[in-house]
């Protein structure tokens, strides 16, 4: 039996079709209110999409994956359940999803190279690496009322004292599921399925209306 794994670059440079983020349609259809625009007051919550990041699901034994990741990327797997490791410049992160599953997020143009190097390093180990970049997107929520918007939406305890920096959970969010995490003091990140992105976006606009929620759109190729 052959152990060959075919790896495809999902974002090859020669692509002629412009990539659209999962929220492109929502921005068109539901609009992108500027922070504070609707209420006329200062905005206390801001959302933004960080599209076109590379999302890789790693499955397998913690020890082999941790070793390979430290070698290739310089960061290790989080040691505890429901936690998150972020590298020094905040661009790359690994999150615990379940006892044998982690989510690795890196800038989009690094995904293919990283996957290839990880595979080379892991050799014949019993692991799986799946590129799910196209299936989900990352929505960033910041502002002083960010946690209040979350409190209206999720059953999980998002009090900033309970949900500390470096924590990340998969939980219910407005009847759908999200991966909710807090990489630093000021930001919350929601990783949502592509097909639910529009729903979550509109939910956030509605839930955040009282805080003057607004959207700040990043440039396509800007990584942060």
């Amino acid at each position: 039996m052959s152990n060959t794994v075919h790896v495809y670059d999902a974002r090859a440079d020669h692509a002629t079709v412009t990539a659209e983020s999962p929220l492109a349609y929502s921005f068109q259809r539901s609009g992108m209110p500027a922070p504070g625009e609707a209420s006329g007051e200062e905005s206390r919550a801001v959302i933004g999409e960080r599209a076109f990041l590379g999302h890789l699901i790693l499955r397998g034994g913690a020890i082999v994956l941790d070793e390979a990741l430290r070698e290739v990327l310089g960061i290790g797997l989080p040691g505890r359940p429901n936690s998150l490791t972020v590298d020094a410049d905040g661009q790359r992160s690994v999150q615990w999803l379940s006892p044998d599953e982690w989510l690795l997020i890196v800038p989009g143009d690094e995904t293919f190279g990283l996957e290839t190097r990880l595979r080379a390093h892991l050799g014949g180990s019993h692991v799986a690496i799946v590129d799910v970049s196209a299936g989900q997107t990352l929505i960033e929520l910041s502002g002083e009322a960010a946690h209040e918007v979350l409190m209206k939406s999720t059953v999980y305890d998002v009090d900033p004292h309970a949900f500390t920096v470096g924590k990340g959970v998969t939980t219910l969010f407005a009847k759908t599921s999200v991966i909710l995490r807090r990489p630093d003091e000021s930001r919350w990140e929601l990783i949502v399925r592509r097909s639910f992105a529009d729903y979550v976006y509109r939910w956030l606009l509605d839930a955040g209306a009282e805080y003057g929620i607004g959207v700040v759109r990043e440039d396509r190729h800007e990584s942060q």
């Binding site: 359940p81 059953v155 219910l172």
Partner: peptide, 11 residues
């Protein structure tokens, strides 16, 4: 026992 914390029944 895997997440090592209490979660809502809905999950």
């Amino acid at each position: 026992p895997y997440c090592e914390e209490h979660r809502e029944e809905e999950e």
